[in-house]
């Protein structure tokens, strides 16, 4: 398809709109101190915590999101449309609202929190809370991405597999999931990236303590108070990590196909 030439103008403006702020930020970095700024104990702790919690929430997203996408894409039942809209809610909800909702669910005085408290599992102010907050906001990314892939892939291969004698679980494992692997990978990356950037729900629900709940975005926000240079350097670090993750997955995907 040939694109009308005028389309390039708003397209370029859009690209500039995204890239320019990143360039502007990179330009403000004190390069001479860059590595000492991002190498401080608190920065390293925040980065390490962010990577760990984002990885954990991505795993959780896959474990919960794949079955959700399957149910949404491969079955029909009453109220499915409403359910889909509800599942997508965290996409459009301000993360702070998500954080408040989680607080009233898993908090000490929350819906489930009191029961969990009795069982000796305190979620508030723990790394678990960070993972819960990140999973809450990033789960829809995986579900949406995977449901789209499942619908695009269609069911014809699954039908053939069934007539060849494969049980539903075998079909899922050997046919469906391998076929939608690119979509699953894309969804997982989106979820990871979203989890990495998660701020509002975390600060509302999990609190902020170095090494326990203070992820990189929280650290950046805090550093702004006293050390704007460190905040800028950490912001750039976050951008680099995000770009690396996206690039890594694109690379492995293109070589796999």
């Amino acid at each position: 398809m040939s694109v009308p030439r005028w389309v390039y103008v708003p397209a370029a403006a859009g690209a500039l709109f995204i890239v320019l702020p990143l360039v502007a930020m990179a330009a403000r970095v004190e390069w001479s101190q860059f590595f000492s700024l991002i190498g401080s104990d608190s920065s390293r702790a925040a980065l390490w915590l962010s990577l760990r919690t984002s990885a954990a929430s991505t795993v959780l997203c896959v474990v919960l999101g794949v079955p959700m996408a399957l149910v949404l894409a491969r079955t029909t039942f009453r109220g499915q449309g409403a359910l889909r809209s509800l599942v997508l809610l965290p996409l459009v909800l301000p993360p702070v609202v998500g954080g408040i909702a989680l607080l009233y669910t898993f908090g000490r005085k929350g819906l489930l929190g009191e029961t969990l408290d009795v069982l000796g599992w305190q979620i508030a102010f723990s790394t678990t809370a960070v993972v819960i907050a990140q999973t809450f906001v990033s789960l829809p990314f995986l579900v949406v991405s995977l449901e789209g892939s499942l619908r695009t892939a269609g069911q014809q291969y699954e039908v053939v597999a069934a007539t060849l004698g494969a049980r539903p679980t075998t079909v899922l494992r050997r046919v469906t999931l391998p076929l939608v692997l690119p979509g699953l990978a894309a969804g997982a990356v989106l979820s990871f990236a979203r989890a990495l950037g998660e701020f509002g729900a975390t600060i509302t629900f999990a609190g902020s303590l170095e090494g326990v709940t203070r992820t990189l975005p929280l650290e950046i926000y805090l550093q702004r108070e006293t050390d704007p240079d460190a905040a800028v350097a950490l912001s750039l670090l976050l951008v680099v990590v995000a770009v690396l993750v996206i690039g890594l997955v694109r690379g492995t995907r293109s070589s796999a196909l």
Binding site: Q156, Y157, V159, V160, A161, A162, T163, L164, G165, A166, R167, P168, V171, R174, V175, P178, L179
Partner: peptide
């Protein structure tokens, strides 16, 4: 379907 012993071959080979 998987428990019928009826293999189906369609127009499109549909190899995995």
């Amino acid at each position: 379907p998987h428990d019928r012993g009826t293999a189906l071959l369609a127009q499109d080979p549909l190899l995995f």
